[in-house]
Design a protein around this nucleic acid. Structure first.
Lengths: 153, 153
DNA sequence: CCTAATCTTTACGTTCACGTCAAGTTCACA
DNA sequence: TGTGAACTTGACGTGAACGTAAAGATTAGG
């Protein structure tokens, strides 16, 4: 058992895989954007799993796409963090339906918050895009006019 | 002639109208994001027109939506600036068709550059939105299952 | 015409999001 | 078992995007 999927990644590996730097990872951890310390065996070096890499990529992606501060992002991701816990708890079969429902409703709320932010921005971008397309259309039309009647009127 | 549309706005008014501060306006001017000095009568105070306010709003909007640095934005807006000049020149009737065509092609290029940026981001956001919607769907389905058979299996 | 509000430039201060360096520790591997 | 690469914390540095304070000029209104 040595070539399974649960490689123990070190912070430098994670950084490269996520396209960032160790410093940034520590900084995010310090801010609470990433769980305090995934796994810290004897030595004190941080060890990560592939799952953590995904999480980091997602954080970076959201940061870029939503253009929010890391603090705001942290609030948004209390969501993500909770959802991870929710998934873990839900994956066990022995959860009472009442509790299960509770967890699902919580997850739903978190998703709704993210969706709201995403849709607002997506809407604004769509509007901007439409405006640009319209402007482009006008320019193209004037160009056609120009080519159509090169020496008239 | 005193109540026409060309009110002379001072920097403080412009700032309020655009939802920002005088400092930011001066800073943008310093960076070259806004024309060097719209109009500077004897006193030395900056005077703006409603058109300048629109321009500023647009700058702010693009900055927020595209999430680029002010330097990158400046490059993108060399476009805008040129387009303003283009519009001015095109509005005169006495421009040679050849020159006219040249200006229009230039404008077209600028718009294309902006569109590319906008569409890339819009696409990424749309993808993120789709993922969130899918996740929400799964959560809702599990909730329905839970409600559907409260005590079976 | 006088004065308070607003403007001017200059310059230093601040927050965010990391970069970078130092001094020591731990890991991987020949 | 040694040694170089990678990691640790701590601290200070940095660029971007402004905020803020100072000292003086200008403008607007009564």
């Amino acid at each position: 058992m040595s070539a399974a999927g649960n490689e123990a990644l070190r912070i430098g590996d994670v950084a490269k895989l996520a396209g960032t730097t160790p410093r940034t990872i520590r900084y995010y951890e310090e801010l609470g954007l990433l769980p305090q310390a995934p796994e810290r065996p004897s030595g004190g070096h941080r060890l990560y799993s592939a799952e953590e890499v995904e999480r980091l990529r997602e954080v970076i992606r959201l940061k870029e796409l939503l253009g929010v501060s890391l603090q705001e992002l942290k609030d948004l991701l209390a969501a993500e963090e909770a959802r991870a816990a929710v998934r873990a708890e839900l994956s066990r079969e022995d959860v009472a339906p009442e509790r299960r429902r509770e967890l699902l409703l919580e997850a739903q709320g978190h998703i709704a918050r993210q969706l709201e932010l995403v849709e607002r921005r997506a809407g604004e971008l769509a509007k901007l895009r439409a405006e640009l397309l319209q402007t482009r259309g006008r320019v193209q039309e004037r160009l056609r006019e120009l080519e159509g009647e090169p020496a008239s009127v």
